[in-house]
Design a protein around this nucleic acid. Structure first.
Length: 825
DNA sequence: GAGTTTGAAACT
DNA sequence: CAGTTTCAAACTC
């Protein structure tokens, strides 16, 4: 487009638009399949259009958000209120946001808050990342600005810049909008900027020299844009802004939150300020609702800000770069669309840009994703930079810059996104600043390293990261994790979305190998051809894991690069069926654990949440989800001729654990029995672990606490499915997840994972179910809709839902996050 | 590896 | 809510 030619701002705007569009495409693709329709047009107008488009698209999601109890919850949480909304509405809101914006009066504050919410939502509720992104984006920008101010030098200026960005000139607003959009798409607007800033700052600080800047800019075109915006915006905006002071504070706070979530970005700042805290944040963010983390997060934000503040200096250069960046961005989308390997064709710039863009998207939501993505990019692209970075962590000059930035951003991202628990860990690692050195690794490694603070998390993170990092470099960090295989597994499980890719890619072999041994399933890969891996048809997607190399999928969008899309799609699906990503099988153990009584009851058998619908398979083949999950059929099942070895619908529940198996126990059953023993052990261990893990997990779960874990276990535990410990499932996840690996590896027969668990032993289905109802969210679900496939519990708020609490102690732990959230504000 | 079967997921 | 279509895994050859 005219991006380059236009003014820097314009250019930046356009570039942003482009990105946005791209993102929009992504999101659209995932969600609606629509496309942003290139932002083409030149100038601001075009930008405006794009935002609108986004709005329309986003709007619905937002509305959903608002509608969703969860969103309400979030809104309630945020202390700040739409004071400023009015402004935004005019500029941004009208354009970008339909419902939500309106809610938030004050652009800054609102944005900030929104961003929080959004992010949180994103984390927690992948659904509607777009909204969040818009708002968040704004916020992020603001935050980024504010942050920069706070942390570093020129709070005022930064503030002004922020304000300027938001309110300021149309351009600014547009930019903000775009940014937001971008963010939405990317999720980590702030991160990007931060990344860019970081790069700058880092380069500067490090003395890496200005030269890096360009690269950095290239890396984070947005960041550049932001810088520009900031500079300009500052002048204009400051005055314009409504109440910078008040807002600022709010914003700052928000920003901090945002930052945390969005862009942990500066490793340095982060590490400095939040360092450990960040981790928490990350978790919190991940959890979505862990407001607790927020407090800490604020600190991190400062750090971030500092990084951002630095940016301005570099801005000038950035502009030129920006233009390139815009171009690159354009390219990016395509590349991103094409998927991982995409970037390759382009020059380093593109790669870097790609990465930056990707990071943006990824950062906020899932650090892990970002990490992975970056790594992937690097690797995939094979571009010198990437390759170099990956291998050594050392980068070519350019690469270095990028890498560090990226790494930082990534690390930060990871943290923020919280979504990917891994990220959290990463964040911690970021503290070290090591991140800078190791891009991909750094993030991952660092995270791993951080152990201390995020210990609980570590496991989860570690797992993924370790995998990803497994890189030689990280060896130190990784090693430990690896050593603690279980942990890793857990880690993998934890995140709502695990980076299969990372694992597989980065150190795919290690984990996978481990996993694989257990099962092919564990690391399953999908073969999707038409679903783009954005539907539940896709096992990876259903498991909340990114598709990895092994996947034979086509047109896969279930990759970190398309994080936004993935999240958006997830949200949509969740909106339809809150339990869509929840574990399909409810474990007895879980229930049991909860009730406490249960323990005695124990092992109730696990049951399939919705029950199967088999007609021809007799529930004796993997076609049957119950059978596949190693659980007996239950009342919920509508199967015909049920012969489920694990328990018949009839009531023959197969009770039994061990021998029970009753009749049909097919080979699988036997296997399962064997597994059971192992599972039991595992379970127990898990249980123990869980508590600890749970905390971390929660964050992971953030999205859906629901539980993917369990599920993931089944389906893809191997991959590392996230354990999502999250929330309620956390426990499950913990158990299942952690174990999953074990299980998975185990004999095939076992149904994906659960069976082994003990469900078999304990299958006492009915009881279990009952208990389960109490215990696990799922149970609740079951109760809700016994037979129906989709039972949607009241809401997505699994975490909030009492069921969780009831479900498991662990869950409770995870839950806290939510509570905290409320209070936070 | 290709083709068929199966049932969940998605759509109407 | 029910019926149909789509989809990808599971299974078979």
């Amino acid at each position: 487009m005219s991006k380059k030619e236009g003014e820097n701002e314009k250019v930046s705007l356009e570039s942003e638009n482009v990105e946005v569009e791209v993102e929009g495409r992504k999101s659209e693709v995932s969600v609606k399949g629509e496309e942003g329709g290139g932002g083409g047009g030149g100038g601001v107008v075009v930008v405006m259009d794009t935002p609108e488009r986004n709005k329309s698209q986003i709007a619905t999601p937002i509305s959903k958000f608002e509608e969703s109890p969860f969103s309400n919850f979030l809104n309630n949480l945020s202390p700040i209120k739409p004071v400023k909304a009015a402004h935004f509405p005019q500029t941004l809101n009208t354009l970008s946001f339909g419902s939500i914006p309106s809610v938030f009066t004050s652009p800054h504050v609102s944005s900030a808050r929104e961003s929080r919410f959004l992010r949180r939502h994103l984390l927690s509720d992948p659904s509607k990342p777009e909204f969040a992104s818009d708002n968040s984006a704004k916020v992020d920008n603001d935050e980024g600005m504010s942050d920069a101010v706070n942390s570093s030098n020129e709070p005022k200026e930064s503030l002004g810049s922020q304000n300027s960005v938001v309110e300021a000139s149309n351009e600014c607003s547009k930019l903000a909008v775009e940014r937001t959009l971008n963010y939405e798409c990317n999720d980590s607007p702030s991160t990007l900027p931060t990344g860019s800033f970081r790069g700058k700052s880092l380069s500067e600080f490090a003395g890496s020299s200005v030269t890096y800047v360009p690269l950095v800019q290239g890396m984070s075109g947005k960041g550049l844009l932001r810088c520009e915006v900031n500079t300009e915006g500052k002048n204009e905006l400051d005055p314009n802004k409504e109440a910078p002071g008040c807002d600022w504070e709010n914003l700052i706070c928000d920003a901090t939150d945002l930052l945390i979530f969005d862009s942990p970005g500066d490793p340095e700042a982060f590490t400095k300020a939040a360092g450990p805290n960040l981790r928490h944040f990350g978790f919190a963010s991940n959890e979505m609702q862990n407001m607790q983390a927020f407090g800490q997060a604020s600190t991190s934000e400062c750090g971030v800000d500092g990084s951002e503040t630095e940016k301005p200096s570099t801005q000038p250069a950035d502009e030129t770069q920006v233009n390139e960046y815009a171009e690159n961005q354009k390219m990016k989308p395509d590349s991103s669309l094409t998927n991982d390997g995409i970037g390759v064709g382009q020059s380093e710039r593109t790669d870097t840009e790609m990465v930056s863009t990707l990071y943006r998207g990824m950062r906020r939501r899932c650090l892990v994703f970002e990490m992975v993505g970056s790594r992937r990019k690097h690797v995939d692209e094979g571009s010198g930079s990437s390759a170099v970075q990956d291998t050594d962590g050392n980068l070519a000059c350019n690469e270095k810059q990028l890498v560090p930035y990226k790494a930082v951003s990534e690390s930060s991202r990871c943290i923020l996104p919280g979504i990917g628990l891994h990220l959290n860990a990463l964040a911690a690692s970021s503290k070290d600043g090591k991140v800078v050195k190791h891009e991909t690794n750094a993030s991952g490694k660092q995270l791993l390293i951080t152990p201390g603070s995020a210990v609980s998390l570590h496991p989860l993170v570690a797992g993924q990261e370790s995998m990803s990092k497994s890189l030689p470099e990280t060896s130190k960090e990784i090693v430990p994790f690896e050593n603690s295989v279980p942990l890793m597994e857990d880690a993998s499980l934890a995140p709502g979305y695990v980076n299969n890719e990372e694992l597989s890619q980065t150190s795919p072999k290690k984990k996978r190998r481990r996993l694989e041994p257990g099962e092919g399933e564990a690391c399953k890969r999908c073969n999707c051809k038409k679903s783009k891996c954005l539907k539940l048809y896709c096992e990876c997607f259903a498991a909340g894991v990114y598709c990895v190399e092994p996947c034979a999928c086509q047109d896969c969008f279930n990759k970190p690069i398309h994080e936004d899309t993935v999240l958006a799609t997830r949200k949509q699906i969740e909106s339809r069926n809150p339990l869509a990503f929840a574990p399909k099988v409810i474990r007895n153990a879980d229930t049991i654990s909860e009730t406490g009584d249960d323990s005695s009851k124990t092992p109730a058998s696990a049951r399939h949440k919705r029950g199967c619908n088999c007609k021809k398979s007799g529930c004796l083949k993997k076609y049957c989800e119950c059978y596949q999950g190693g659980v007996g059929c239950s009342i919920n099942c509508r199967c015909e001729g049920c012969k489920n070895a694990f328990g018949r619908k009839d009531g023959s529940v197969f009770i039994g654990t061990d021998g029970d198996a009753e009749e049909e126990e097919t080979d699988a059953y036997e296997k399962s029995t064997v597994d059971r023993a192992s599972h039991k052990n595992l379970l127990h261990s898990d249980v123990e672990l869980n508590p600890d893990s749970t905390v971390p997990a929660t964050p992971l779960a953030f999205r859906r606490p629901p539980m993917q874990l369990p599920f993931s276990l089944k389906n893809k535990p191997p991959r590392s499915s996230f354990l999502s410990i999250g929330s309620s499932s956390g426990i499950f996840a913990g158990q299942g997840v952690g174990r999953p690996d074990f299980f998975q590896p185990q004999p095939q027969p076992q149904p994906k994972f659960e069976k082994p668990f003990e469900s078999v032993k304990e299958d006492e289905m009915p009881e279990i179910l009952q208990q389960g109802g109490t215990s696990s969210p799922i149970s609740g679900i079951k109760t809700a809709s016994p037979n129906r496939k989709r039972v949607s519990p009241p809401h997505c708020d699994f975490a909030n839902s009492p069921s969780r609490r009831s479900s498991r102690k662990l869950i409770l732990q995870s839950i806290p996050s939510f509570p905290s959230l409320t209070p936070n504000p």
